[in-house]
Amino acid sequence: MTATATDVGDAIDQDTKLALYRQLHRLRKFEERAYRLFMDGLVKGTSHLSLGMEAIAAGFGEAQREDDLTYCTYRGHAHTLSRGVPMDGVMAELLGRANGVCGGKGGSMHLTSVEHGVMGSYAIIGAHLPIAAGAAWSAQLRGSGQVTVCFFGDGATNIGAFHEALNLASVWKLPVVFVCENNLWMEYTAIADVTAVEHPAADRAGSYGLERIVIDGNDPDAVYLEATRAIEHAREGGGPSLIEAMTYRHGGHSRADPGTYRPQEEVDEWLARDPLPMYRQRLLDAGVSESDLTAIEDEAQADVDAATEAAKNGPLPELDEAFTDVFADGGSSWRN
């Protein structure tokens, strides 16, 4: 690890820390609710949660400029919410309602809100890395100063698109930050069992002329500081970064997967490093009052409750919507 809690925490102002704390709780409580709604049969299909991994989305979300771009994966609830996309629209999308961010046509795996810079959640492993590079190329061409942040899991590092995107981004010096959330498990197989190097992203960075960066992805301060550095580096024309953030998912890969293929000692070790209680203690130690923190937690819970109600009460999509938005004329007609 290049950064630890004690040596980085002081560089961050208190407002930012409280914002990070608030975001951690919004994401945690949202994901807990999403799981319950899935088990209740209200979220259909599949759902991939970021429980335990919230510090990464929170840290980057706090560091991104309003017009910066985010590309994330099918495990993208947290990354979408951390850009300020309204919780109501995200929850409603999970429930397939017309007031969802994609009108119910995307679902849990395809959350998108272009007006918030969330350019999509991509459900084919690794596919969005070259797309994110292309968005960064566009920002470079347009001189917009926007930086693209692209999140992906450890499993994406063994797919060709990862390597093609890294090489192109490096050769063209594109303003993009690639963030590997290494939670040690791809789906049901340990990344270490099928990868030639210990750190599946960072140990490949040198192949693309990039620095080897591994951070503690469960430490919101460490994530925020590294995110700030990498984003500014990209914005100033320094080119891409590849960051491997070590973390762990509290639950399984998707749906109702209990994740029992993982050794219990490993699960226990990482549960003890849950970012939420750890960060709470850090803020208490820094002099924030217990009641202030509790108020933040209660507010996050109230937001999730309200979003749940808005989603449950949201209208179902009109059936005609199945035939819209295939082509730019708004429809799906392919012949005259």
């Binding site: 596919a127 190329w137 090489n167």
Partner: peptide
């Protein structure tokens, strides 16, 4: 060379790159 650009032999990077550029104003 800014508007007419040689790429590596990386079809996913070419097409993904084009897509990312297209969805952001190019």
């Amino acid at each position: 060379p800014v508007r007419v650009r040689d790429t590596p032999i990386s079809e996913e990077a070419i097409i993904g790159g084009a897509m990312g550029a297209a969805m952001t104003g190019m």
